[in-house]
Amino acid sequence: MRRVLPGWAGTWGRAVAPVVVAVLALTAWQVLVTVGRVAPFVLPSPVAIAEALGAILPQVVSAALATGANALWGLVAGSVLALVAAALAARLGWLRSTLVPLAAVVAALPIVALAPIFATMFGATSELPRQLVVTVVVFVPVFVNALRGLQSVAPVHADLMRACAASGWAATRTVTLPGALPHVFTGLRLAAAGAVISAVVAEYFGGLQSGLGSRITSAAANSAYPRAWAYVTAACALGLLFYAAALAAERLTTPWNRRTS
């Protein structure tokens, strides 16, 4: 009798495999750095980074909270703006033909170009420039995906709504919005990852020394490499947290859209 191994393909396999790979990679890294005698300023060992992380944990946590707050505000503001814009653009042709090219332009804007400009505009003592950078970065994927979702009503559903003599608003509520949700969440997942990255990068251009990005630059400037990497690790964890939150919201809100089960 032939059977596909259920354990490996199943939940356990999916949870265990990345952990195993991560442990192997970290071990290889440690061995490479110690045995290969890589200079610590090139690449500190995982153990050195973990020690640095342990030593400055309160600072790391507060820096992660500051950056996380910026990312969250930007994510919320950018998403709300993008959803409103997408809803309007889906209804109004003239607005759509204005906003879609504009979104393409914004998508092409490098955050490294925006961050210093916002920093000078809003002063060095405010978190606002960082939050604005995140807002701009978040806007594009949410807007583009939400608009695509709102415009992708299946023809058979459109026919059904007409056959049932549904009013415009009833059709929106019944098929357009639920049908757009999976697309919206695709946008939000991309935006959640981008929000943390841009919140960190926005801090590289001066201003308040509160967040992960500024701590990474100052640690690197002081040649405190394990410390810099400890903050990088925190940035990575923060990004994963945002992504996981977006994924969890997606699972809760669109349970029919799950690929498995």
């Binding site: 559903h157 639920p178 949700l181 859209n257």
Partner: peptide, 12 residues
């Protein structure tokens, strides 16, 4: 009442 070639159910 109408039934189309595709079932066209609302999957949500």
């Amino acid at each position: 009442g109408i039934a189309f070639q595709q079932a066209g159910l609302l999957e949500w």
